[in-house]
């Protein structure tokens, strides 16, 4: 009797093992936690998520949204997420304190994402009128860097205006109730401001001062431990970018779903964004320029020399997957 029970249990055990074995995918599945900053510039990642291009790369991706890439960076440094989409400015700031950050690809470049939106009834009709005004800026983001470059381009200095640190979604309310006279931010927050202020709003863009890059960022530790996972993420994102560019309408629909901007508005600003997977000299130059700006304007880099920004970029995986995308030596 005991022997019969033993045979029965052995049979069940073998059956369970066989069934669980059949359920496994041929290629080992990897789990990745991806932090994404919310903005139009993240459209290719929204598309990659929605179309689940991760699946074909045997990736199980847990996506976590952040109001800004700057906040995703905190989670990346803390080890809560493995990869994040972040603008260049937070990465430059972060490198002073956490030198293990690495950029594996740029997925978007734009010189028109950051904008200044102001109230006409605050006496602002041209960029020169910003002198002496209260301007909302999300510190530590590309918005801060753009704001500085923008007022410098008007011949003003940081001391000629009052910068107020505000999280991007709070800027609309602050501008609407007159707590600030203007703010600098990225989309969708500028469009939200326009919607709130109507004819009382005026928007300024200076495309000549800064080309923002939106990047896939990870840490040395994650890359060293999971280089194949990083390659798979890149392959999926390359598909996402290709789909975004080949299917404008669908990509806009997906972005509309994520950001709540109307499709008409998205359609009107879509061409401001150059969605492409690259690692170019522009990225190195942008990082270096901002590193020098931080060095000159704050004591964050006190006693330290600037990092070698070329070493911050890991180009090998993208070079293997899409050689034409890598133009840095």
């Amino acid at each position: 009797m005991v022997f019969r029970n033993f045979k029965l249990m052995l049979g069940i055990l073998i059956l369970v093992l066989v069934v669980s074995g059949c359920g496994r995918v041929s290629e080992e599945e990897s789990r990745v936690t991806l932090g994404q900053g919310m903005g139009v510039l993240n459209a290719p990642i929204f598309v990659t998520n929605k179309m689940n291009f991760w699946e074909s790369q045997s990736l199980q991706v847990n996506v976590r949204p952040f109001v800004a890439g700057r906040l995703a960076l905190d989670s990346l440094i803390a080890g809560d997420i493995d990869i994040a989409t972040i603008g260049d400015t937070p990465v430059v700031y972060g490198l002073f304190k956490h030198p293990n950050l690495r950029i594996i690809a740029t997925v978007m470049e734009s010189n028109r994402d950051e904008k200044v939106i102001a109230r006409r009834d605050a006496g602002i009709d041209s960029p020169d009128d910003l002198k002496g005004k209260r301007i909302g800026v999300f510190f530590g983001t590309a918005g801060e860097y753009y704001a500085i470059r923008f007022i410098e381009a008007q011949g003003l200095s940081k001391e000629d205006v009052s910068f107020i640190n505000l999280k991007a979604p709070d800027m609309v309310a602050a501008l609407s109730n007159g707590s600030i006279d203007a703010y600098v931010s990225w989309e969708p927050h500028v469009q939200n401001g326009l919607r709130a202020l109507g004819d009382n709003a005026v928007v300024f863009v200076n495309p000549d001062i800064y080309t923002e890059t939106w990047n896939l960022v990870t840490t040395v530790e994650f890359f060293n431990n999971s280089p194949e996972t990083v390659r798979r993420v890149l392959r999926a994102v390359v598909r996402g970018v290709e789909y975004t560019n080949a299917n404008r309408k669908e990509a806009i629909d997906i972005t509309e779903e994520q950001l709540g901007l109307s499709r008409d508005v998205l359609d009107s600003i879509w061409d401001d964004y150059d969605f492409k997977v690259v690692l170019s000299e522009n990225l190195v130059t942008t990082l270096k320029n901002q590193g020098e700006w931080i060095q000159a304007s704050s004591d964050l880099s006190k006693g330290k020399s600037l990092p070698d920004y070329r070493q911050v970029i890991i180009d090998q995986p993208l070079r293997e997957i899409l050689p034409v995308a890598v133009s840095i030596p």
């Binding site: 700057r70 700031y93 304190k97 510190f139 640190n165 704050s298 964050l300």
Partner: peptide, 13 residues
């Protein structure tokens, strides 16, 4: 509180 938030964002820990 304002300074805590501002210094956090620019990594002046």
């Amino acid at each position: 509180g304002y300074r805590i938030s501002a210094y956090h964002l620019v990594f002046q820990i």
